[in-house]
Simulated scan of single mutants.
Amino acid sequence: MTTLQAVPDAALDQLFRNARTVHAFKPVPVTDQTLRALYDLVKWGPTAFNAQPARFVFVRSAEAKERLRPALSAGNTAQTLAAAVTVIVAHDTRFYEHLPHQFPAYDAKPIFEGNADAAQATAFRNGSLQGAYLVLAARALGLDAGPQSGFNADLVDKSFFPDGRWRTNFLVNLGVADPSGTFPRGPRLPFDEVAQIL
């Protein structure tokens, strides 16, 4: 009988049980090396046809943050400007152009090349998955994360992706948490309310 090999409780605490959505950050920088290590974890997460449609823009400089500022909601501006890095999690609308290389098992490119609805649904769904992997990978590396959807995606696209190929999904602030800005943890729904075993 196969025995499951769970990671240690300390890792589960860091990734899930003790991790929080962060709303305030200490002025601690995040290096290029850390951002590259972050992506090197994210890239291994599964996606349909190994398509990897997510695209990540690491907004770190003061100039880039100012480009982002007009798109932010009032309630998210201070935390985003304070974060060491804000990641624009986007997706490539023409991700399927890479499929012959990334998914050589058979020619999957035609499934999406002539079907805009299928391409959009696949890019958005799998790009969202990759954004979730990014949050967990950041936590695994010791960073704190604050994902957010309180912003104007059209303004982000106009500023950062004017050719229209990449489209913004959501933002993730990364850095070291300032505990003074941490909200009390909200309750979670119980298993029997949200799940079934059939």
Rank of each mutant, 00 (worst) to 15 (best):
V57A: 11
A10S: 15
Y39G: 00
Q102A: 13
A105Q: 15
A64T: 07
I88S: 06
E193F: 00
L171Y: 01
A6M: 11
F151N: 00
T47R: 02
T47W: 00
L35G: 07
P100N: 06
P190K: 13
L38F: 10
G186K: 15
R55K: 10
T21F: 08
F161K: 11
A145Y: 03
F160D: 06
A19Y: 00
S149I: 10
P70H: 07
F25G: 06
K65P: 12
F112G: 01
A71C: 07
L129Q: 10
A195K: 09
F151L: 08
D9H: 13
G114C: 09
F124Y: 12
L72D: 08
P184R: 07
F124Q: 14
G175W: 05
A54I: 11
L143A: 05
Q130A: 12
T34Q: 15
H91S: 13
R36M: 12
G146Y: 10
F161D: 11
P104N: 03
D154W: 03
H23Y: 15
S180F: 07
A90G: 05
F183Y: 13
V89S: 11
P27H: 03
D117V: 11
G150E: 02
P190C: 08
L72Q: 12
A137E: 03
V135T: 10
L174A: 05
I88N: 08
V28N: 00
K26V: 07
R139I: 02
D107M: 09
K65F: 01
E97P: 01
R55D: 05
A48V: 12
Q102Y: 13
V22I: 15
L35S: 06
N50R: 09
D154E: 15
F112T: 01
Q52D: 02
D157M: 10
P29I: 03
